[in-house]
Design a protein around this nucleic acid. Structure first.
Lengths: 338, 338
DNA sequence: CTAGGTGCAAATAATTTGCAGAGGC
DNA sequence: GCCTCTGCAAATTATTTGCACCTAG
């Protein structure tokens, strides 16, 4: 067991006395992975201490749910199952109708949609259940793919988060390199070059960490995806680079960079917090901070450029569909003659 | 009861004999809206025919689920609820923890993500459950908003689908108008003008239908959103129009149109099929066909233009991030000299 | 005539509760 | 010492089943 368990002592915010029985149930529960039914847990607990009553297990379970330690999940079997809730605050389930096993996934996209929809309906969401029932690959084809069990979940999560991060940094590097090439204003160019350099460095760190993870589990790369994040399939900056290709001026390039860094910062922050692997967590949170610095730098640069040009543009477009077929070279020459 | 009920006679594909009891249970069930527990249904049925046993209701219910007439939903109350499944094949729920009521919504975006994620995991989805539990607006603020009950669901669905459709057509009209303005090739211009005309006509039809709906229910516009479809907030063509503004050549404009028409066709088809209101359904399915015609026209035009230019481009970009800062005027003049 | 549907009552199964006693603060 | 937790057994709740009988095809 190399995965650190949460500090049980900290897990008692909700009222209630400590008791050896309750502690035993809690510690047994928290050591498990997967989704236990009340009865499963009862049997497990009784192996260590046969003198524990079913009712106590039920009572402790509902106390744990109330205290936020456990989460109740219902796979429609006619009984409830419980999972420790410290792991991933929001995750979703595939449930196979044939083998009745379940596997988990994260989807940043679904999370955002749920937030948005709840907001639109003025609904205050406490918990979101997403369950996809159907037939799993193994039951359909007979072939088992490398499973993601409790022991490897943390690793697979880290792998996926790193993949997104690597794609992001790679696209960021490309973006800044290209932006530096397009900019003729010396000061702007040096900013872009500096940022390109930092993204390159980040990229190196991430790739190194990725290699370390793969070394920990040779099957790692063949395991199924756990964290889905569509927007970042080609990197958070990819769209920006594409826009850049269509011919934009220096100011627009800065704006695009700002937008991308904002998303990127948010990504590193959001998922950094969910890392169990402390090394990965540290990298992510550190990068989140650095992306924030980049962001501020770009914003500062944007303002400074606006002043130099003497034509302050609003920091965001007035409408979602402003049309500005500005061709880069034209504006650049004016910048050059400053 | 002005909403047409499904033809009960058609609802018996799964084996089984007909029987007066079963018919009575089925017809009672299908006439209800909302989510009934087995017991609720039992009570309702017994009002009409007191001699029906609980067990029969349970058995009929599981037969209905097997036959695809009913869907079992579980709100974690310790008992199952059932809903008729003919209404919306895939919809999701808000469940209020305080008042224990639930309301439904559709999200095209979540549906697509689920499909995509399931595919990535090689999971064959049969059903998707999305439940957002929390506190509803009414329980939080004490203020009730216009409810969407069973009687108005169809109306609200139609309203939302029409809103998206109107935004789509409006953005399509803008797109084609702008494209026509940018094109100097006479033939291409006339195609764009023709399409603009058709979108204008569609827009008129949709707005008329929308007004009719609002006339049916004065509160309609104040009811909460039922169908969420983020991509179409500003219309399916909005992004295309924006891209157009950055300066593209005739061929690229056609490609953008093709992409948008494809999405638009899919939208009309997907939601046309879900209309209960036969008038709306007809409009949508008709438009789906017409968008298909537009699509084919654009594709044809794209090919023809490619031949005239003698520089066949592949119909899709080789990479997701091809950079082509092509400026419209340059290419247009070559088209003009054909 | 016969497979399948039906009612009733009894059986299961998961979970909760009443109560007397034990244990933490 | 008081209040809460605990175990046991009994109660409750939702759902299923056994069985004798009925009914449609």
């Amino acid at each position: 067991m190399d995965r650190p368990l949460p500090d049980i002592e900290r897990l008692r915010p909700a009222g209630g006395k400590r008791s050896s029985k309750r502690d035993r149930i809690l510690s047994t529960f928290v050591r498990q992975e997967g989704h236990l039914s009340a009865d499963d847990l009862c049997d497990l607990v009784r192996k260590e201490d046969p003198g524990i009553g079913r009712a106590t297990v039920y009572r402790t379970l509902q106390w744990m749910v109330g205290a936020g330690i456990a989460r109740k999940v219902d796979f429609g079997e006619g009984r409830s199952r419980f999972e420790p809730s410290y792991r991933h605050p929001r995750h979703f389930h595939f449930v196979c109708n044939t083998c009745h096993r379940s596997s988990e996934f994260l989807s940043s996209d679904i999370e955002s949609f749920v937030e948005e929809i709840a907001l639109a309906r003025s609904f205050t969401p406490a918990q979101t259940v997403v369950q996809i029932t159907g037939t799993c690959e193994e039951c359909r084809t007979g072939r088992a793919s490398a499973p993601v069990d409790g022991a490897t979940t943390a690793l697979v999560f880290a792998r996926d988060a790193l993949r997104v991060a690597i794609a992001t940094e790679r696209s960021g590097l490309e973006f800044y390199t290209r932006a530096a090439g397009l900019t003729s204003d010396a000061r702007g160019r040096s900013v872009f070059q500096k940022l390109a350099g930092e993204e390159r460095e980040h990229l190196g760190t991430l790739e190194k960490r990725y290699a370390e993870l793969v070394a920990q589990d040779p099957l790692l790369e063949s395991r199924p995806t756990f964290l889905f994040f569509k927007g970042a399939a080609h990197g958070i900056f990819a769209e920006g680079t594409e826009t850049l290709g269509r011919g934009v001026d220096d100011q627009q390039a800065l704006l695009i960079g700002i937008k991308c860094e904002r998303r990127s910062h948010k990504f590193f922050k959001r998922y950094g917090e969910r890392f169990e692997d402390s090394e990965g967590k540290q990298i992510f949170l550190e990068f989140a901070d650095e992306e924030k610095v980049h962001l501020d730098l770009l914003i500062h640069e944007y303002r400074a450029l606006g002043e130099r040009l003497g034509s302050p543009k609003p920091a965001r477009r007035a409408h979602g569909k402003a049309h500005r077929p500005v061709h880069a070279r034209r504006r650049e020459s004016s910048a050059r003659t400053r």
